[in-house]
């Protein structure tokens, strides 16, 4: 019940950003044109959609059996990270004000989802499907490598380790959001920050597509920076997690471009797929 309400609010907020952003940046005409050509575009990126589906399914799996494996291995890096940076994130919270907190909560919950969804729509609208393919590959790499880290390492965030100096601002200001975050992650999974890595990945792609979507670059970069800062400001991630996320983003971006450059997109469904669909 609470979860459903939270999801509706999430969808409403993200749509409220997405619709105007698409209208302004992509434009209705280009968007509708892309829809009419959607079959070709789906076929083109089909080889990259499958791995994404696999990784997202693995994400569900990693949530249920992942903790078992993590605790079996018991590679608990929390103490190491704490030893490395101590109470560095406290500095950020010293700047806290109600307005700033509202902003970062909004960015963390809704801005982030918008940041991930918009480029999918925008790159889908480009005639050249390579950008969309690259983005999908980069998402797969981020998620895939991030999940492996989550399963391998046990790492708790600042709010769980230094609670007397870091407030768990997200959950004190938006208590019910925990029903949602509890669905998508566990509190032992903070290294690396996927919020930071996926946002940075999107920002890197915004730079790559600056000639097509210059307004997007102007929006994506500050938003991505905000998301990364928000994760620390809200007491969820360590500086180390965000740094790890940025490295992951850079690596995924670089590799995604190489992969699509090497393997390209499909021009049509391979013959055996067509035969399969014809038979059914």
């Amino acid at each position: 019940m609470v979860l459903a309400d939270t999801l509706v609010v999430l969808a409403a907020n993200v749509l409220a950003m997405l619709v105007p952003a698409v209208a302004v940046s992509v434009g209705p005409r280009r968007f509708l044109g892309a829809l009419r050509d959607s079959r070709r575009r789906f076929v083109a990126v089909a080889p990259y959609l499958l791995p994404l589906a696999v990784v997202l399914a693995a994400r569900r799996l990693a949530l249920s059996i992942g903790p078992e494996i993590s605790w079996y291995l018991e590679w608990n890096v929390t103490g190491f990270i704490y030893g490395l940076e101590g109470t560095a994130v406290v500095r950020l919270q010293e700047l806290a004000s109600p307005l700033l907190t509202d902003y970062f909560v909004f960015v963390y919950l809704y801005g982030y989802v918008f940041l991930l969804v918009f480029p999918i729509v925008a790159y889908f609208a480009l005639d050249d499907t390579d950008r969309l393919a690259e983005l999908l590959v980069a998402f797969v790499l981020n998620y895939g490598i991030g999940l492996v880290c989550y399963v391998l390492f046990v790492a708790y965030g600042p709010r769980n380790v230094i609670p007397e100096v870091v407030d768990s601002l997200l959950y004190t200001t938006q208590p019910t959001s925990q029903h949602l975050t509890g669905e998508v992650n566990r509190n032992t999974n903070v290294f690396p920050s996927l919020h930071a890595s996926l946002s940075a990945t999107v920002a890197l792609f915004a730079w790559r597509t600056r000639s097509e979507y210059v307004e997007w670059l102007l929006l994506a970069v500050p938003l991505a920076v905000s998301v990364a800062v928000a994760t620390m400001y809200l007491g969820i991630h360590w500086v180390t997690d965000v740094a790890g996320g940025l490295v992951l983003a850079g690596g995924s971006y670089w590799l995604a471009i190489r992969v699509v450059d090497r393997y390209g997109c499909w021009e049509s469904m391979p013959a055996f797929f067509s035969r399969l669909s014809a038979r059914s």
Binding site: N76, G79, Y156, V161
Partner: peptide, 23 residues
């Protein structure tokens, strides 16, 4: 908080101390 404070104090006393949160 008690455990982490203890870890910090042990470190200041020259013990190779690590804090390990566990569910």
């Amino acid at each position: 908080t008690i455990a982490r404070t203890l870890t910090d104090r042990l470190s200041s006393l020259g013990v190779d101390a690590v804090f390990e949160p566990k569910g």
